[in-house]
């Protein structure tokens, strides 16, 4: 299973990768733009997406990704420090399937990944 982790902070990406364990293969992208490129050429089974990023932020990424043929086929988990309901709702309405706030607990992320992909970590 390929999981795309999109976050501009390399620390955050490392944290997520660690939480995902080694049963999955992880692709990293540092912003929405890079993520769009990757989704266009790679098989991605799940995305974990930050919101505040340079170049193309998480919400704009959702908008752009929504226009691509893969829209709706890849479950997306938002991972952000935003606790505002409006932002969470906006992300969900743009096609995200779950919203996790930072800092997250490992089991939370693992449960979501398993729940959305049907594969255990």
């Amino acid at each position: 299973m390929n999981i795309l982790v999109v976050d501009d902070s390399v620390t955050m990406r490392k944290i997520v990768v660690l939480a995902l364990g080694n049963k999955v293969s992880v692709i990293e992208a540092e912003n929405g733009k890079a993520a769009l490129e990757i989704t266009s050429r790679e098989q991605v089974d799940l995305m974990i997406l930050d919101i505040n990023m340079p170049e193309l932020n998480g919400l704009d990424f959702l908008k752009e990704f929504g226009k691509t043929p893969k829209a709706g086929k890849v479950p997306i988990i938002m991972l952000s420090t935003h606790t505002e309901k409006e932002i969470q709702d906006q992300a969900m309405s743009l096609g995200a399937r779950a919203f996790l706030t930072k800092p997250f607990q490992k089991p939370e992320l693992q449960a979501l990944v398993t729940g959305l992909t049907g594969q255990s970590l």
């Binding site: 501009d8 902070s9 620390t11 955050m12 944290i15 505040n52 420090t81 930072k102 800092p103 997250f104």
Partner: peptide
């Protein structure tokens, strides 16, 4: 704001 925000995110986890 963005810079603090990013530091906060990782600090929370650690």
């Amino acid at each position: 704001f963005g810079l603090f925000h990013s530091v906060k995110g990782s600090a929370g986890f650690l």
